[in-house]
């Protein structure tokens, strides 16, 4: 669950114009946002649990170095949320521990 966002957009900037899904829930975002920025803007601060201890983590460096913002994007696990720009309708899910084996076992 998100807490109320403690971040606000600058009033004279562009409006939030698209919708993405985070864990199935609609989140408004701005074209040009990275996934991680859009989630922070919406108050989602825990974006994965670790494969080691299962504790929650959220975006840390926002520049592709720390790999803390790993999320599943349109079915592809362990994407760096700070390195991917949002698209309308994009489906984002928190990573829960290690990735799973892809479906469709031959």
């Amino acid at each position: 669950m998100p807490s109320a966002s403690t971040f606000a957009r600058l009033p004279d900037g562009p409006a939030e114009d698209i919708t993405i899904l985070f864990n199935g829930e609609a989140v408004r975002a701005r074209s040009g946002d990275t996934v991680a920025a859009a989630l922070i803007a919406a108050g989602h601060r825990i974006t994965r649990t670790t494969p080691v201890s299962g504790t929650g983590r959220g975006p840390y460096c926002m520049m592709g170095a720390c790999f803390e913002c790993l999320v599943e994007i349109d079915g592809e696990p362990n994407r760096q949320g700070c390195m991917v720009q949002v698209r309308d309708g994009m489906r984002i899910d928190a990573m829960s521990g290690a990735r799973k084996l892809a479906e469709g076992n031959p």
Binding site: N78, G97, A98, R99, K100, L101
Partner: peptide, 12 residues
Amino acid sequence: PMLMITERIEPF
């Protein structure tokens, strides 16, 4: 001889 190691994935 070269080796590669991957990120973690659930046991398979």
